[in-house]
Computed example of a mutant assay.
Amino acid sequence: MAVLKVHGGVLSTATQRVLACLHEKQLEYELVRVDMAAGDHKKEPFLSLNPFGQVPAFEDGDLKLFESRAITQYVAHSYPEKGTELIYQDPKRMATIGMWMEVEAHHFDPVASKLVRELIFKPMFGMAVDSALVTEYEAKLSQVLDVYESRLEQNKYLGGDYFSLADLHHLPCMQCLMGTPVKELFYARVHVGAWCNDLLDRPAWNKVIELTNDA
């Protein structure tokens, strides 16, 4: 049995973020599926892993973590010799990567997640889409992507010339939005569109998609 355990649902974007990191690092892990439809993430024993009742939770031996971005950073730091190098020793390079990780968490994800909820998950559960909210958040996402376009004119990836956690963290919400009209906001920007294609074509990410197809 794998030492590393991920507790979550494969349709959860936060869980997907951790799985993408593990596949990039070519690490074996056990996926412990949490039945979120049944509310198991709000009950014990899951609450002993994450008292906030949100997936994913993660175990590496006696270490227990929650919050997907904290988990990916732990994995990248703990297994530097495995798979893709997602973080770097050079402090200036890592500072730039860290800055764009913060941008994803505080500027991209809050907007993209709202759009995913409105355009993907609400219809999935038979709920009405708030069109006014979609319009508002499309405008906000456009502003973020304008900044990304300027950055990606200068560098292949957000953190520089190499793929890193700063890019990986975008993948789950990006993938979801590719199935909606919001996709056009990404591809209206040449460098952002090329960046999307690069990320979405990564073999590690395709392994995550295979898991969601089996859900």
Rank of each mutant, 00 (worst) to 15 (best):
L65D: 02
Q16I: 06
G39D: 08
K114V: 15
D109P: 11
K122H: 13
L22G: 00
Y88W: 08
K114C: 13
F58G: 00
E102G: 15
E153M: 12
V147E: 01
H77M: 07
L199N: 08
V134R: 11
L49D: 00
L133D: 10
Q26M: 09
G179Q: 11
E28H: 08
K43L: 14
P80A: 03
E184T: 13
N155C: 10
T96A: 12
Q154T: 10
G9D: 14
D40S: 12
G83L: 06
A20P: 01
D161P: 04
V208S: 06
V10Y: 00
H7N: 06
A166E: 05
I71C: 05
V116Q: 08
H106V: 14
P203N: 07
G8P: 11
A70Y: 08
F58V: 04
L145V: 04
G98F: 03
L199H: 02
D198L: 06
P56C: 08
D62L: 05
E118S: 09
A112S: 09
K25C: 01
F121P: 10
M174C: 13
G9P: 04
N155E: 10
G8N: 13
D109A: 15
L158I: 06
H23Q: 13
D198P: 02
I97Q: 03
V208D: 00
V34T: 12
P181A: 01
D130F: 07
L22K: 05
K114I: 15
W195A: 03
L27D: 05
V18K: 01
F121V: 12
D201S: 15
V190T: 15
S78V: 05
L11N: 13
A132Q: 14
L47T: 10
M127A: 12
E81H: 08
A105I: 10
Q89N: 11
V144G: 02
H169C: 12
S150F: 00
L119P: 09
G61M: 14
K140F: 00
G83E: 02
F108R: 06
E104H: 11
I87K: 02
H106T: 15
L199D: 05
V192P: 01
F58C: 02
C21Q: 02
V6C: 02
K42R: 15
D214N: 11
A215E: 09
E59V: 04
G159E: 09
K43D: 07
L168C: 10
W195N: 05
Y162T: 12
E85F: 00
H41Q: 15
T135M: 14
A57V: 01
F58K: 04
L49M: 10
Y157S: 09
R151D: 00
L31G: 03
M124Y: 11
V111A: 01
L165E: 06
A215V: 13
L22N: 01
I87S: 07
M1R: 11
E30A: 11
P110Y: 05
Y187S: 14
G126C: 07
A166T: 09
K207M: 09
